[in-house]
Amino acid sequence: MIQVEHLTKLYGSKTAIADVSFSLEKGEVLAFLGPNGAGKTTTMRILTASLPATSGSAKIAGYDCFDQPKEVKRLIGYLPEIPPLYTEMTVTEYLTFVGRIKGIEPERLPVALDQVLERMSLSEVRGRLIANLSRGFKQRVGLAQALIHDPPILILDEPTVGLDPKQIIEIRQLIRDLAGARTIILSTHILPEATAVAKRVVIINDGRIVAEDTQEQLSARLRRSEKVSLTLKRSTPDVRERLLALPGVLSVRQEGHTFLVETELGRDLREDLGRVAVQNDWGLLELKLVAMTLEDVFLRLTQHEEGMETQP
C-alpha cells in the first residue's frame, strides 16, 4: 500500500531526512517514533504529496507522490500537527467545504457528512462555531476532516498532542476503531502511544531510521539478558550470595527489599528463584519478569549508548 524507498529531503544544506525506507501493507498501523525534529513531519508531508522529496521515491497504492499528486491526495486523509481549522466556520460548514475540495459528489456529501459526524461523536456540536469548541473537540473535527472522503490511508501527525488524558484515551480508541480497513501511519514522540495503537514501530532519529520492527521484537532484539525482580519481606545478609549461587544467574542488584536478578538469555529462572526464597523463608512478596520497555529501547537507540554499535 505504501512504499518508501531511500527518501531524502534537504532544506538548503540541512538534512531533514536521509535515506528513509519502509513499506506498509494494507490494513497495517505504523507508528513513527522519534524526538521532536527527527523528521517525522517531513516524511509525512512527502507522503501527502504536498512536499517534494530531494531524492528517493514514495508510492501510495502504486501512485507516485511526486508525479501523480492528485491520485495520491484522493487516497489520503491527513491530520497535520496543528489541525487546519477555519475557526470562524461551524463544524458543518467546515466539513462541507472539506468534502467539496476532497472531491465528494454533491449528492453524496450530506450522507458522508452525517456519517463522519456520527463516527467522531460530533453530532451535538455540528452547528457550533469551531472557535468555541474545546481542544478535544477541535482535534476530533480535525480527524473528521481527514476522514470525510473515506480514504483508505490515514496519516496522522501527533494526533494526541495537547489533549488531556481523557481525550487522549478517546482519540486513541478512535484510531484503533479506524484501523483494520484502513492503513494508518501516525507519528508520536510519546512512547506508550506507539504501543497503544500500533503493531509496528519505526524509530527515527536525526532524519534516519534507527530501528523498524514490531514492538515485541524490538525489545527482544535489544535484550541481551533476562531480568527478574524479586521482592522479599525479610532479607538476610546472605540473600545476594545465595541468589548468585544459582546456576544461570549473572548478577544481582539490591534496591532495598527488591533484588534485580539478571540471568542468562533464554533461561527463565523464576521457578528456581521462587523455590530458594520459600526454602529460606525470606517471605516472598513479589516475583516478576522485567521486560525491556519501549522506553528503554528508544533511549538506547537514540542516545548512542554503549552497545548500540553491536545492534544490527
Binding site: A49, K70, Y78, P80, P84, L85, Y86
Partner: peptide, 14 residues
C-alpha cells in the same frame, strides 16, 4: 498563519 494552507495543499485541488 492558521496553517489551513496545509489542508488546501494536501487536498486534490491544484
Amino acid at each position: 498563519k492558521l496553517k489551513t494552507m496545509e489542508l488546501l495543499v494536501t487536498s486534490p485541488v491544484t
